[in-house]
Design a protein around this nucleic acid. Structure first.
Lengths: 167, 167
DNA sequence: GCCTTATTTTGAATTAGTCAAAATAAGGGA
DNA sequence: TCCCTTATTTTGACTAATTCAAAATAAGGC
């Protein structure tokens, strides 16, 4: 499978591929953690090398989402499907098909660029986070008038750091 | 303007805002470089604090694009416009949304999530890069059969590092 | 003009990822 | 099957983007 793409078949590559197949949208760190369990010497660099190679030959697809600092990988390629991500916990799901105005997917003005791809990312709030946020709001019914970034934090706001922590 | 959003009006904030207004899609580092010219003590942390605050109150919009490691900021908010980015040089342009309001597209299956927004990102190749790439192809007409990530690089491939270098 | 407290500054840490050289191992050819 | 070439992995250092926390500063309501 890898061989006729010009890549040698190695244990780390196969394990990484298997992991992404069973864990769609895994990031490099998750793959590393998984590989480290069975192989003793693997490092993050190895994983980065692998995902870069596999992405280049088209076995993996790299997905960058606004709520995640790290790139995610998936084996489902070829169908240009999209993603929906919870802005609160970072959960990612596939979206097979979108409905809406076609013009939204064909820009009127490309500013002289040749279009390669249109990727749609939906940002949402998953049921669990919605629930959790409601509970919080019940305790803090009104929006404070003043709030700063470093002090006077209103709540343990589920920012991207929370998302990272979920890994 | 900032005052009735619960934020104090400070010189760094005003300068940062002014810079983003005149330089749409600026990233934190570009803002920092600009501020450092006129203000002597500003640091990157200050800029991050500012853009975080201004984004939170809705004066700025944070834009994360696949080809850029860093976040970009813009003052054009409220109209739900999209972006097209050159995959080669990282240049970003606005693409107007025909619908104009938040979710201009909706997924067939939201996987139980409440939809917040559909962000559409177009990836393309700008005219200049197209030109440059053609010149390169003329020199290297065929794709090598085997290629690795660390050695045997085919060309100074315009990856994201190239984009970073543009800053 | 003072005082509270939001902002900025200072300094250190974290996360994601890259680069390069040395060691290892895949797999085509003898 | 063994050897040799060279792709891949390992080792180690490094960069970029961003965050965290405590101390110093300054906005703006009184």
């Amino acid at each position: 499978m890898l061989r006729n793409l010009g890549l040698r078949v190695t244990v780390p590559r196969l394990k990484a591929l298997e992991y992404v197949q069973t864990h769609p949208h895994a990031d490099a760190d998750a793959i590393y953690t998984s590989l480290a369990l069975s192989l003793h010497g693997v490092t993050r660099q190895t994983v980065h090398g692998i995902v870069n190679d596999l992405t280049r030959v088209g076995v993996l697809r790299r997905v960058s989402l606004p709520e995640s600092a790290s790139a995610h990988y998936e084996t489902r390629i070829g169908d240009n499907h999209h993603h929906i991500q919870c802005v609160s916990c970072g959960r990612i799901e596939d979206v097979d098909c979108v409905v809406g105005e076609a013009p939204c997917l064909t820009p009127e003005d490309t500013h002289g660029m040749r279009l390669v791809e249109a990727s749609v990312t939906f940002r949402g709030v998953c049921a669990e986070c919605e629930m959790r946020n409601m509970a919080h709001e019940a305790l803090q019914p009104s929006i404070p008038l003043t709030q700063s970034h470093s002090h006077a934090r209103t709540s343990p706001a589920p920012t991207s750091s929370t998302i990272q922590a979920k890994r």
